[in-house]
Design a protein around this nucleic acid. Sequence first.
DNA 1: TAAATTATCAGTAAATCCCCGATGTCCTAT
DNA 2: ATAGGACATCGGGGATTTACTGATAATTTA
Lengths: 219, 219
Amino acid sequence: MNKVYKVIVIDDHAVVREGLSGMITQEKDMLLCGVDDGTSAVRMVNEFMPDIVILDLSLKSMNGMDLIASMKSCKPDILILVFSMHDELIFAERCIKTGASGYVMKSEEPEVILRAIRKILEGKIYLSEKMMEFFLHKAMNFKPQEEQDSVELLSEREFQVFHLTGSGMGTRQIADTLNLSVKTIETFKDNIKHKLNLKSASELNQYAVKWMLSHNIIS
Amino acid sequence: MNKVYKVIVIDDHAVVREGLSGMITQEKDMLLCGVDDGTSAVRMVNEFMPDIVILDLSLKSMNGMDLIASMKSCKPDILILVFSMHDELIFAERCIKTGASGYVMKSEEPEVILRAIRKILEGKIYLSEKMMEFFLHKAMNFKPQEEQDSVELLSEREFQVFHLTGSGMGTRQIADTLNLSVKTIETFKDNIKHKLNLKSASELNQYAVKWMLSHNIIS
DNA sequence: TAAATTATCAGTAAATCCCCGATGTCCTAT
DNA sequence: ATAGGACATCGGGGATTTACTGATAATTTA
């Protein structure tokens, strides 16, 4: 007797729903028992008791993270595969911590998505190679706990530089503001990039602005 | 004698390709004669001579506009429906001006997409109600206290550079992405700074990221 | 058709990036 | 108390980017 897994798909893009639904129904051991745009996702979890939920993170209506949490608290053993258009490095960790079991980007091939589903159904966590590596790297410098915002890793000076960078200042301007050598600011920027896993100054700029905005420090 | 329209689908998200393909093949008078991720779109236009192309305006490769232009120049009577996840108010106008015949957002229902396809096949332009209204207002020079977004002043190329800058790319990387000289990208950045009244590269970076975030192009 | 805009590139000096290393201080754990 | 580790502060040097001032050809607009 082969178990048939019940699946529901939650995505506010109708066409993506169609694509995923098609994929699922072609699998013999999967039963697509629900499709939704996110508005009644929790109700559907209650009603159909699915084994796994494929969840689009780009839901406009509701916050995807909240959805993960609500579904998990309503059926703690539910498996959630997040299917997102956003870069995994930014969102995957938060998703997994909130209770998801996997994260794939929309640009992936269908095979990858099915592979992710199957791995999750085995009780494992699915992440891309890149992501795995990232987490391993992170696990190495095993910091105690509760360190979800890596900006917290920055020292005081580093954070000041990060802050001023997000405010749109250049290296010279920051050096003047803090009464330090330009070289010192450069070193701080290097350290920040390493701590935040950023590859270039451009990425640092983008990250800093995003961080400042998300923390309502600038608008 | 019912004409059968040849359709090709271009999208770098495999699942979206599947969804669209499914929709098309269910229509009796449409023949899906090609699916691609964008890399060989122009070649396919030459090979299959489709009546209409459904094109995903993707951010990653950022060659959507170029693709519209190349396909148009290679087969001037080709019809192009842009299918995008981004807000129409930002991109639709540029797409239409570049040669597209319609613009629908990915969040639309499949019926809307099919309606758009049929309207375009009749030789008309498809835009959402909201968009139509917006254009009417604009055409009438009725400018309410609507704040003028100076990003509108940017030319196509300048906008691409602005866009990639907000995505965290450096000058070199942008040059490689757009297959242009580094010097050219520098000039574009200068022009952008003048048009947007920005005093430094740092300010441009910050502005670009903020603009992208406030328009939900990045998260 | 004339004028304006756009798209493309170059030269140069200054600034910044990015990878190295250095010194001294303070804090923590063995 | 001593060794290790962050932290704050600087420098060298080559590669890149910035911030200017150009230029030319194509395209759009008036």
